[in-house]
Amino acid sequence: MEPEWLTPRQVADLTGYAPKTLSNWRHMTPQKGPKCFKVNGQYRYLRDDVREWMKRQVKGCPATCQTYCGNCTQ
């Protein structure tokens, strides 16, 4: 199955965060927000990564948690 790439605008619509916020996050060190990639010169997000990131936000995983571990309860 082909990965589904999302634009920053699509991620903003899914998450409720402004595109500018997503831009600020992806330029932070360490990167904050959903994992982002540069594809053909454009920033893109994998839909599955965005979903997992959103689950971590609800579950309370720390920003350093790279996968939805199911154990974070902060």
Rank of each mutant, 00 (worst) to 15 (best):
T29K: 04
Q10I: 12
C61N: 05
Y45Q: 01
M54R: 03
T64Y: 11
Y17A: 06
Y45M: 00
V50Q: 05
Q42D: 09
M1Y: 13
C61I: 00
K20M: 14
G41P: 05
N40C: 03
C36Y: 00
G41I: 01
C36V: 12
T73E: 13
L46T: 05
K35L: 09
K38E: 15
C72D: 03
R56F: 08
H27F: 02
Y17C: 07
V50W: 04
T64R: 11
G70V: 08
K20R: 15
M1F: 09
P8W: 04
S23W: 10
G60W: 01
M28H: 12
Y43S: 07
G41S: 03
E2I: 15
E4D: 10
G16P: 04
R9L: 13
Q57R: 12
N71S: 14
D48S: 14
Q66C: 08
V39Y: 06
D49P: 06
P19I: 06
T7H: 06
K32H: 13
L14H: 02
T67I: 14
V11S: 00
Y43I: 07
N40A: 11
H27C: 11
P8L: 08
G60F: 04
L14F: 02
K38R: 11
V58C: 05
L22R: 00
K32T: 15
Q10C: 06
T21R: 04
T64Q: 10
N71F: 15
N71W: 15
M54G: 04
R9D: 03
T29A: 01
K32S: 13
K38M: 13
T29V: 10
V58P: 00
P30Q: 07
G70Y: 03
Y17L: 13
H27N: 14
N24H: 10
H27E: 07
L6H: 09
K55Q: 14
E52W: 02
N71V: 03
G16T: 13
C36M: 04
L6N: 05
C65S: 12
A63M: 01
G41F: 06
K59F: 09
Q10S: 02
V11W: 03
G41W: 02
R26F: 12
V39P: 01
Q42V: 05
T7F: 08
M1E: 11
W25S: 01
L46F: 10
E4F: 09
G60C: 09
Y43W: 14
G70D: 03
Y17G: 00
P8Y: 08
T21Q: 04
T64V: 14
Y68K: 03
K32C: 12
K35M: 02
K59E: 14
P30F: 11
R47Q: 08
G16W: 01
Q57T: 11
